[in-house]
């Protein structure tokens, strides 16, 4: 387990943690590795990635609304990744990779839910238009 290797490595200089008696339940997995620099990088990136889409939409956006929407969504996707890395401290090693596995599984389900719902319902709206229903009725014998 990678956690044990970590605790050996940090056991020396984490003197004030030793009196808790939690040598192997060390704080490095989730409680110990936030840094000021990490938070600031994440914050500055998040501010930039928030300000650009707001400015884009409030100043009128592109000529085609669809282009503006795609750009806004792209910025949101990048910002979510930034939040995941710098604020939620996601990486492939924490909890022996179980965090990342759960996240990937959830992302797959979220993608299926979102794209599936929108896709199916769009086509249902399209195929259930009143005019089309009328035509079907007329074709009946």
């Amino acid at each position: 387990m990678s956690g044990h290797v970590d605790s050996h490595g940090h056991g020396g200089h984490d003197q004030h943690h030793d009196d808790h008696g939690h040598g192997h339940e060390h704080h490095d997995d989730g409680i110990g590795h936030s840094t000021f620099k990490g938070y600031m990088i994440g914050f500055v990136l998040a501010v930039i990635l928030t300000a650009i889409p707001f400015w884009l939409v409030m100043s009128g956006g592109f000529q085609k609304p669809a282009t503006t929407s795609i750009v806004v969504l792209a910025f949101a996707a990048v910002q979510i990744v930034v939040h995941m890395i710098y604020f939620l401290h996601m990486n492939t090693k924490s909890e022996g990779g179980w965090n990342m596995l759960a996240l990937i599984f959830t992302m797959v389900l979220v993608l299926i839910t979102l794209s599936g719902s929108i896709w199916v319902m769009y086509h249902m709206d399209h195929n259930m238009m009143p005019s089309m229903m009328m035509r079907e009725m007329q074709n009946l014998p």
Binding site: T50, P53, F54, T68, V72, L73, A76, I80, H83, M84
Partner: peptide, 21 residues
């Protein structure tokens, strides 16, 4: 932080895309 991530989706998907014609 998770709620902030959800809010990124809300302000992008609901508000910024919602005001598009």
């Amino acid at each position: 932080h998770f709620l902030d991530v959800v809010w990124v989706g809300v302000f992008s998907f609901v508000y910024l895309m919602g005001v598009q014609p």
